[in-house]
Simulated assay, not measured.
Amino acid sequence: MRRLLTPKRLLWALLIGVLLLAALTAQEFRLFERAWFPVQEWRHAAKWRGESIWLPDYRVAIEALPIAGLSDLSALAYDPERKTLFTVTNKNSQLIELSLTGQVLRRIPLQGFGDPEAIEYIGPGLYVITDERAQRLIKVRLGEGEAPVSAAATEQLTLGIGMNGNKGFEGLAYDAAGQRLFVAKERDPVRIYEVHGFPQLNPELPYAVHVVDDPARDARLFVRDLSSLDYDARTGHLLALSDESRLALELNGDGRPISSLSLLRGQHGLRRSVPQAEGITMDDAGTIYLVSEPNLFYVFRKQAD
C-alpha cells in the first residue's frame, strides 16, 4: 500500500533537505574550518605570537583611501630599495608606482602583457609580472621615468598548469634567500606553486626550472580563492589573501595557517568590509599594505603589546 505523504512527513523531508543543503554550503565555503580556526589561534597564541607576523595584533591605520585616476587595481609589491609600492592595472595594462600613503608617483604603460594580474619585487630594478590567462611569468627591468615596458625580448616562463580561463595566476611572492618564486593559482583548485630557477639571476649557470606542487598543503587553506601573496623574510612565512573569503592568512614554513586578518566590517578597526581585496604586501617594518578594486588603499599597523 502506498504511504501517504502527510504534512508531518513533508515537514521532515523539507527539514532534512535544508540541513543537507546547509552542510553542502558550509563545506563549499569552508565554514567549519574557518569557524574553528579562531579557537586554534587562541589556544596557540602564546607560542605563535612570538615567532610569527601574528595578524590578530594588526589594526587599520588608513582605510579605503581612493587612489585618484585608477579603476582596476590588481596586486601589490613593496620595493625595499625605493621604499615605494608597485601595482598593476589589467584593463589598460599599466604599472603604477605608489607612495606608502597611497599617492600615485608614476604610471608606466605595459606592452604585450595580455592580462597583467600580479607583480613581485625580485631585486633592485627587477620584477616579475604575471599574465593571468596565459599563465606567463615575465621578468622586467625598470629604470626611472615613465617609458613603456615591453614583454618582447624578455625572460619569460609559461607553466600552463590546470589552465581554465580567467582563474590563473593571481599572486606572486619571492623568497630572496631561497631564490623561490611563489605563484598563486586563483581557484578551481586553489594552489600555491614554488618555482625554482626563474627568473635566472646568474646567466653563467645552466637554465633549469623546477616547479614544486603540494596539494595536501593547499587543501588546508580554508579560503574560496587566492588573490595575492607576500613572503616575510624575517619569519619565513607567507601571507595569502583571499578576496571571496575576505581574509588574509599567515602560513608558516610548512604551509599551515597560524593567524588571520579578517577584512569584514568591525574587525581590526574596519568601519566597512573591504569590497574586493586584490593585493597585499609588507614593508621592512612589518606594516601591511592592501589594495582593493576598484581603487581603494589600506594600511594595517601592528599595535604595541
Rank of each mutant, 00 (worst) to 15 (best):
D254M: 08
Q276S: 13
A219S: 12
E63Q: 14
V291Q: 07
K139C: 13
R272M: 10
L137Q: 06
I192N: 08
P275Y: 00
S52M: 04
L226N: 11
G143Y: 06
D79T: 09
I161H: 08
D72E: 15
L95Y: 07
F222H: 11
A61Q: 13
D213G: 00
P215F: 03
I119E: 09
E120N: 04
Q179I: 00
L238K: 06
S74V: 03
E120G: 01
K167D: 15
F32I: 10
I67S: 10
A45C: 02
F37T: 06
A233V: 09
G112F: 01
E28P: 00
P203L: 01
A22Y: 01
L247G: 07
R82N: 08
A285D: 14
I16N: 04
R106D: 11
R9N: 03
R220T: 11
I288Y: 01
K8E: 14
L98R: 06
G269D: 07
D243W: 02
P189V: 09
L14T: 11
G69V: 10
A304D: 14
H237F: 08
L157V: 04
E132L: 03
T89I: 04
N90R: 12
A134I: 00
A118E: 02
S259M: 03
E186R: 06
M1A: 11
A75W: 03
R133N: 12
A176E: 14
E144I: 06
G162E: 13
Y207I: 00
T287W: 00
E293I: 05
E278C: 04
S99C: 06
L24Y: 00
R301I: 08
F297Q: 10
L290H: 06
G102Q: 12
F169H: 08
D283V: 05
P56K: 02
Q135Y: 05
F32R: 08
M163W: 00
N92A: 04
A68M: 09
K8S: 10
R220Y: 01
L11S: 12
D254G: 13
Y78W: 09
L270K: 07
L20G: 11
S262A: 14
F182M: 02
L98G: 12
K139W: 01
E194K: 01
T130P: 11
P109W: 09
